[in-house]
Design a protein around this nucleic acid. Structure first.
Length: 421
RNA sequence: GGAAGUGUGGCUGAGUGGUUGAAGGCAACUGUCUUGAAAACAGUCGUGUGGGAAACUGCACCGUGAGUUCGAAUCUCACCACUUCCGCCA
C-alpha cells in the first residue's frame, strides 16, 4: 500500500512504476475514484455534523412537546445520513480494491526488463568446479546414496512429493544449524513462526490478493503460507514500536507451502521445485529512511554471501529487472548457485526491500525523534531454504566414486567427511 | 466439541442510552525545588482523516461486522479472540 497523498501528488511516478514492472493498472481510474471518495465523504460528514448538532439539543430541552418535535424533525435527516453513508461505503470498497493494486516504485538502479531472463549479473564469485569424470545430477547421486526417495514421495504426497532420508536429512539439519548459528552470532533473533495464517497477514505482506492461486487454502479460511516472512512481518502488526528498539533483526523458520500453479512443466524432477519445503528467512524492520533500507539490504545479501563463500560455492548475484519484481518490492537481488549438470545458476536466495509498502498494510509504526508517527521500513532475504540448496551442494561436491564431500564448515554439524554409502 | 465469563487509550481500570474521546491510577514528557538525582508539587499527555497560515475546528475510532434509536462504549444479533471448567487429543 502506498500513501494516497503521494499517489495524488506524483501520478507520473506511479505510472512509470506500472510500466517498469510490466503491470496493467490504471492510475487515472484510481485518481478519479479518489476524487469521488473525497466528495462523498465530505457530503456524509456535513450531514452527520448537522445531525449531531441537532441531536445534542434534545437532552438540553426540558419541555416534552418541544422534545418530541425535535425528534420528529430529525427523522428525515436520519434517512439522508444513512443514504450518504451507503454511498461512502460503496466508494470505499472500490477505492480499497484499487489501492491494493498500486505497485511500489522500483529503485532507479533496477534494470528494465520483462522477466527473469533480463535480470543483470552484478557479482560473480568463485569458479565453475572442474570434474575429471562426468558429473551426475543430484537426483542420481542422492538416490544412489539413499538420501532421498521420490518414488514413495509421489506415492504418498502426489506430484513433487519426496522423502529426504539418512544423510540427506543430516545435511539438511546441518545447513539449518550452520546458517542459523552464524546469524544468531550477528545479533539476529531466531523465531519458529506459524505457517498456517489468516487472510489478513497475507494481505499485509502483499501475497494477497495477487498471489491467491499459488496458496493452499484451508476449509477454515486460513492459508498455508509460502514463506515465514508472512508470519514474521505480522508479528508486530498494529503495534507502535520504540524507535530505540529498531532495527528488529529476525530469523523466521517455518515450513513453506507453494502450489507452483503455472509452473507444472518446470523442474518436474528432483528437489529444485517442490510443494513443501523448509526455510529460514531473514527479516528486518528499520527506521523509515531510504539509505538505511539500502544499507540493510546489502547486509542481508552479504550475510548469505559470506556463508556461501565459506562453503566454497560458486554463485552469482543478479539484480532483478522491473518485470521480475513483486508488487511491493523496491529492489531485489537473487543469489543463484551454480548447478554443474544443468550448466546454469539456480536461485537459492532472494533479497528484497519494501520501504513502507508492507508496514502500511500491517500498520507497523514507531515514533521518531520529533515524536511523529512513522511507518517502519521492511526487508527480507532467504537465509537458507532446503531442500533446494541440497541439490546444488550435492552436485558441486560430488566425487568420482559417487560420494559427497562435506564442506569443511559443515563437518562439525555432520560429524563426518563424506556423505553417502 | 459442550458450559460460563471477559474484550475500553502505552499499561491498569471506571463508565450500562445524551457535552464521554472517554474519570482515577501507573508510565512518559515539561516545569518548580535540588550541586545532581529521587521525592513532592504544578502542568502536558490517543490515533486517523478533512478544513484552516495559525488559533482552532468537522468527521471517525471503546475486539470485528450488522442492527435498534433523533442519539450507542452503553441495548440486540452474528462473528473473532482470550480466560476458566468439562470432553477429546499430541
Amino acid at each position: 500500500m502506498l500513501d494516497i497523498k503521494f499517489i495524488k501528488e506524483n501520478p507520473d511516478i506511479i505510472k512509470e512504476a506500472v510500466r517498469k514492472k510490466h503491470l496493467s493498472f490504471n492510475v487515472d481510474e484510481l485518481l478519479s475514484v479518489e476524487e469521488k471518495r473525497k466528495a462523498t465523504l465530505t457530503a456524509f460528514e456535513t450531514l452527520r455534523a448537522e445531525q449531531n448538532t441537532l441531536s445534542d439539543k434534545i437532552p438540553q430541552t426540558a419541555d416534552a412537546a418541544e422534545r418530541a418535535k425535535l425528534i420528529e424533525d430529525l427523522k428525515p435527516l436520519k434517512e439522508k445520513v444513512q443514504e450518504a453513508e451507503e454511498q461512502v461505503k460503496a466508494v470505499m470498497k472500490e477505492w480499497q480494491t484499487l489501492m491494493l493494486q498500486v505497485p511500489n516504485v522500483p529503485d532507479m538502479s533496477v534494470p528494465e526488463g520483462g522477466s527473469d531472463e533480463e535480470n543483470v549479473e552484478v557479482k560473480l564469485i568463485g569458479e565453475r568446479p572442474v570434474f575429471d569424470f562426468t558429473p551426475k545430477d543430484h537426483i542420481t547421486l542422492m538416490e544412489q546414496n539413499d538420501m532421498v526417495d521420490f518414488e514413495r514421495g509421489t506415492k504418498v504426497a502426489g506430484f513433487r512429493g519426496y522423502y529426504l532420508k539418512n544423510d540427506g536429512v543430516l545435511l539438511e539439519m546441518a545447513l539449518w544449524n550452520y546458517f542459523m548459528s552464524t546469524l544468531v552470532k550477528k545479533g539476529y533473533q531466531p523465531f519458529h513462526v506459524p505457517s498456517l495464517v489468516t487472510k489478513n497477514t497475507l494481505y499485509g505482506t502483499g501475497y494477497l490478493p495477487q498471489g491467491e492461486e499459488d496458496l493452499y487454502k484451508t476449509q477454515d479460511d486460513t492459508y498455508l503460507s509460502g514463506t515465514g516472512e508472512v508470519a514474521m512481518m505480522s508479528y508486530h502488526s498494529d503495534e507502535v514500536l520504540n524507535a530505540s528498539d529498531l532495527p528488529k533483526k529476525y530469523i523466521a523458520m517455518s515450513p513453506c507451502f507453494r502450489r507452483e500453479a503455472g509452473s507444472h512443466g518446470k523442474d518436474v524432477k528432483g528437489l529444485i521445485r517442490v510443494h513443501e519445503f523448509f526455510k529460514l528467512e531473514q527479516v528486518i524492520l528499520c527506521e523509515a529512511n531510504h539509505q538505511v533500507s539500502v544499507d540493510f539490504h546489502e547486509e542481508l545479501t552479504a550475510n548469505v554471501e559470506e556463508i556461501l563463500q565459506s562453503m566454497g560455492l560458486h554463485y552469482h548475484v543478479v539484480v532483478n529487472c522491473g518485470g521480475d519484481l513483486g508488487l511491493g518490492q523496491v529492489k531485489k537481488y537473487d543469489i543463484e548457485v551454480w548447478m554443474p549438470t544443468q550448466e546454469k545458476f539456480r536461485e537459492t536466495h532472494s533479497s528484497s526491500y519494501f520501504h513502507d509498502f508492507q508496514t502500511r498494510r500491517l500498520n507497523i509504526r514507531y515514533k521518531d525523534a520529533e515524536g511523529k508517527m512513522q511507518y517502519a521500513h521492511s526487508l527480507n532475504n532467504t537465509l537458507v531454504a532446503t531442500p533446494r540448496i541440497l541439490a546444488c551442494i550435492i552436485e558441486n561436491f560430488q566425487e568420482a566414486d559417487g560420494r559427497i564431500r562435506v564442506p569443511d564448515v559443515l563437518k562439525p554439524y555432520i560429524g563426518k567427511d563424506y556423505l553417502g554409502k
